[in-house]
Design a protein around this nucleic acid. Structure first.
Lengths: 218, 218
DNA sequence: TCAAAAGTGTTTGAATTACACCCATGG
DNA sequence: CCATGGGTGTAATTCAAACACTTTTGA
């Protein structure tokens, strides 16, 4: 079969990331193809003949995550002829980001969240995809407002700072962080506080705009 | 035909850029497919069933440019089902950069260099590809040494500065530029000067390393 | 009243910017 | 000797980094 395919099979594999209080997490499912059956793998599947790749991504996502909207971005296309033993399968991979509060509801398909810094050996070239995705996310953090895609609707400045710290893997100075973020004018100050904790209640904020913009962040 | 393709056709389209004394230039050929016959287009073609995408890029390049080595990088994959009227053709596009001195030799296939800021209407979605490629190049200039791929083996600091200015589309201060570049330690000072001009001869430099590295440039 | 996180300015050092003149060559 | 681009340093400013105490709440 491998030798006389005239066309490539088009598939997509998806690195779905979220950030909780402790780490970046990636969504893993279980491979079903013969060659990798039972191994952990990124969610993915074939792209229909009349389907936009991005529509396939959304369709596949819906099967595993009950998520209404999410940030999607094409990552890289892996097309080596031998990456799938079944034949020429070209995978246009995507990065998907969702806020942790909308991510808790994974239930179908045996999907689970794994800390991105300790992913096991995955099927296909999926470890490489995860690596590429992390690099992309870290890179975009520095010059875009992409963080909005990982935050819940309302959050405190400490929540936001923690998300940056987790992704960048370094501590930030609280006062300098707040100075910078405030200056950028991306946030709306809400007339609410996060009450009910044994300390001074934190003011809540939301993003005034939820689409990707380029700007100097770090 | 369009309706019952079970597989996608895999192609590649290539944005080949170079920079001369006045502008960024992109290599254009002429489309041959029925739908766009005669229109200017990026060089491209089908990827063979057993061929790596990058190998196809190199093979197609060789047909139009007598270039030995070049910087290649995958750009983006365009896969909308209706982007080619012939059916589902997925194009994994590449950015290729070559120094102007190796670019002068285009002769076959009616290929020509066009100023990237005044490309005509191109076949398919090729204008979008060019736009994506320019953005990528400008972006990478700021945080990598990618400029090496556009410079000849030996060059003056003024040549280098002009290349930056053309791509960034703004003037740089000569003294500050030299301070910064010197500090980065990417260049070897050659024991040569560029003689034969009606002014003080400029020292020649070359890159000490010609592979992509990330570093703060601007 | 104690513990825990929120909130807030100033000082210091580093990096970036602005800026002008003399030099070496070819014609 | 003139025109052309090559080559060089310093001062002013802006930006980034370091740093500590008071406030507010729930328990």
């Amino acid at each position: 079969m491998k030798d006389n395919l005239k066309f490539a099979i088009l598939s997509t594999d998806i690195a779905v990331f979220t950030v909780d209080e402790t780490s970046i997490k990636v969504l893993l499912t279980t491979a079903t193809s013969d060659a990798f059956k039972g191994m952990p793998a990124l969610p993915g599947g074939l792209v229909g003949p009349e389907e936009k790749i991005e529509d396939a991504v959304k369709r596949i996502l819906k099967k595993v995550l009950p998520v209404k909207s999410a940030y999607l971005e094409q990552l890289y296309t892996f097309g080596d002829p031998d990456r799938d033993p079944i034949g020429r399968v070209v995978s246009a991979t995507y990065l998907v980001l969702i806020p942790w509060n909308t991510a808790k509801l994974v239930d179908r398909q045996g999907a689970s969240w794994r800390d991105v810094r300790s992913v096991p050996k995955l099927a296909y070239d999926h470890n490489e995809i995860v690596k590429t995705a992390v690099k992309r996310l870290v890179g975009k953090l520095a010059y875009t407002n992409i963080i909005f895609s990982l935050m819940p609707q309302e959050f405190t400045l400490t929540d936001l700072q923690k998300a940056y710290e987790l992704i960048l893997d370094r501590k930030l100075d609280k006062r300098n962080f707040r100075k910078k973020i405030g200056f950028l004018g991306l946030l709306d100050k809400l007339p609410k506080r996060k009450e009910g904790e044994a300390n001074r209640p934190a003011r809540l904020y939301s993003f005034s705009e939820k689409k990707l913009r380029e700007l100097e962040i770090l």
